[in-house]
Amino acid sequence: MPYLYNMKKIFFSLVCLFCVQVVSAQKDSLAFDEGNNYIYYRVIDKPALNADTLYKRAWAFAAAFNRLAKPAKGQVENTLNTSGKLLVYTGVSLMRKEGGEISYTLNIQTKEDRYRYRISNFVFKPYQRDRFGNMVPIPGVEVPLEKMEVKYGKKYTDNYLDQVAAFSINAYAKLKIAMDKLPATVKTEPVKKISTQNW
């Protein structure tokens, strides 16, 4: 009987692990917009805060999120845009290396009691190894994320889509903290102390 009990636990663990695997397919968080381009899009209610307050917080977030690019006001009122790039990797574990970089545009718009956040315009720049052993962009080669599957196949594309989605989710989490004006939580681990006096 204990044997069967252990087997049940192992089966349960496996089911949990596979559930985690399914959840980790983060590319499903991305959607297509009206122009059939990949987008990560969220509308968030923020009751009791006016558009200007939300906009100021959004601006502070965008300026801190990518210090290399200054946010720019959008054409529509209370809209801002910023851009940046993220590194994407191929392979796993020791064989993991930079496969390229993906540029993006981040857009935030605020209204009374709500704001919306979107990341879009994803463009992939593949890397190659140079003569010095560094991974560097191939000059002049840029592929919109939507056309990647045609050029690089489904396996590579899905891997990069997962990384883009993970980046977008992470940025969204940071934005929420900034908009809520919550201080970033720092996880402190208790220091393990022992007494060497009594033994």
Binding site: S24, Q26, V92, S93, L94, M95, K97, D162
Partner: peptide, 24 residues
């Protein structure tokens, strides 16, 4: 179980932004 866990651990590394420990 160990194999599944190791695959998951490896794929989790893919989504981090930190530099890989060693690039081969």
């Amino acid at each position: 179980s160990f194999f599944t866990a190791s695959v998951l651990a490896a794929s989790a590394q893919d989504t981090t932004k930190s530099d890989p420990p060693l690039i081969i």
